Computed example of a mutant assay.
Amino acid sequence: MITDADWSELLYTRATDPGAVRRAYAERVRRDRLLSKRGTLFLVAADHPARGALGVRDRPTAMAHRRTLLDRLLVALADPDVDGVLATPDVIEELLLVNGLHHKVVIGSMNRGGLAGARWEIDDRFTAYDAQSIVDSGLDGGKMLLRLVDSDASTAPTLEACAKAVSQLARRGRMAMIEPLPYHRDAAGNLVQDPDPAALTRAVTVASGLGATSAYTWLKLPVPAEAAVLDATTLPVLVLGGPPSDRVADDVAGWAGALRHPVVRGLVVGRTLLYPPDDDVAGAVEAAGKILWATASGAPS
């Protein structure tokens, strides 16, 4: 947890020593592998605020309070089952400045320009890390969001930008994590995620083919309604947590089936674990770690 002294020091450093960020990147002790010894990967996600997605259940600005967010992230990262974090530069740099990322996998979020609720939301510009800055910062990979809306031409530039990012990351030997999600617009023009397994299967195949090589590509996917969706790829998959419900136990149990599939390597979960209904972050993270241990396929036998 962040003490008052730690918080004061962080704020003072932010105001007086911007070079501390560069030094913190350089001094981070990197882990020598992506996967844990059991062949899985468990990341905590905190890139929502940069896209303006701040709400959790009935709390519309839950993720806006930065000290609380950092405190919850540090609690999660302290769990030995948590391998690392997925976040934008601001969050990663603050965790670095409080020494929270040594021996952890760190994935930089790349495109956050499709602001939640914006008219241009599908044209998801790359506004955070790029491939070179991920390498220069000593990060382990980059993540990109790819929402597919056939009726919206703004999907095309995002597709192209993601393909370029995949190629650029691969040339530098870094993981490219793509989150492909099928969407459509309802009668009111609002974006709605398509629950049809066939639509998600199609999204998987589209994302798998992006870039000059798929050698470094991973997929970040919601739990599919049908396990056959996961049969559409040989790429390693991480299951995302999805919108949190009122019971962490129900959310965690819902991930179990997907975690048993051999292409699934682990979890990338944010709000469900960082903002559980009872605010017991450590307990929520522990429950997720247990279900991963119990169900993930891991390394070949």
Rank of each mutant, 00 (worst) to 15 (best):
S8Y: 08
L11D: 10
R14E: 13
T16E: 09
R23W: 09
R30D: 11
L35K: 08
L41A: 02
G52E: 02
A53K: 04
L54H: 05
V56C: 00
M63V: 03
M63W: 07
L69P: 03
D71Y: 06
A78C: 11
D83Y: 03
D83Q: 02
V85S: 09
V91A: 00
L97E: 02
L97G: 00
V98D: 08
V106D: 09
M110N: 12
G117Y: 04
E121D: 13
D124L: 09
S133P: 01
I134F: 11
G138V: 06
K143Y: 10
K143R: 14
L148K: 05
A153L: 15
A153F: 12
S154T: 14
T158H: 02
A161H: 09
S167D: 12
A170V: 04
A170L: 12
R172I: 07
M177H: 06
I178A: 05
L181A: 07
P182F: 07
P182Y: 02
H184L: 14
R185I: 01
D186V: 05
D186P: 07
A187R: 14
A187V: 09
Q193Y: 09
A198V: 13
T205I: 11
A207K: 00
L210I: 12
G211M: 09
L221N: 01
A228S: 15
G242K: 03
P243Q: 14
D246L: 01
D251L: 08
V252F: 04
R265P: 07
R265C: 04
G266N: 08
V269C: 04
T272S: 14
L273R: 00
E286A: 15
I291C: 06
L292M: 07
L292Q: 01
A294E: 12
S297G: 12
